[in-house]
């Protein structure tokens, strides 16, 4: 399969994942989908030929997702503490 066609299909998939993040109801589900978006971005960078950039994006994507999950957990805990008082 020629390379540009593969890039086009992957870009279409990324646009639909981005639309799914905007319309998601649950915040935790949006975070997991964001992890999938980061993974497909890494695939895209590999297909274009930038191997260093793809390596960096893989690591930074997982660290960024972990930050989001910790922040969600902290916000929910704060909410429970306020309600208890």
């Amino acid at each position: 399969m020629p390379i540009l066609l593969l890039e086009g299909l992957l870009l279409l998939a990324m646009i639909s994942i981005a639309i799914a993040i905007i319309f998601g109801k649950n915040l935790l589900a949006a975070t997991i989908i964001y992890c999938g978006f980061s993974f497909s971005a890494m695939l895209l960078y590999t297909i274009v030929g930038a191997a260093d950039v793809a390596f960096t994006e893989a690591i930074i994507g997982t660290i960024s997702t972990v930050y989001f999950i910790i922040a969600i957990k902290s916000i929910k805990n704060r909410g429970e503490h306020d309600e208890k008082k």
Partner: peptide, 25 residues
């Protein structure tokens, strides 16, 4: 939701980085 705004900021960043990388092919 404010957290989704931060996620969309990262989506923007991915698209710009990809746009830049296509000039090297």
């Amino acid at each position: 939701n404010y957290m989704k705004k931060i996620m969309c900021m990262n989506i923007m960043q991915v698209s710009i980085i990809f746009f830049f990388l296509t000039f090297g092919q």
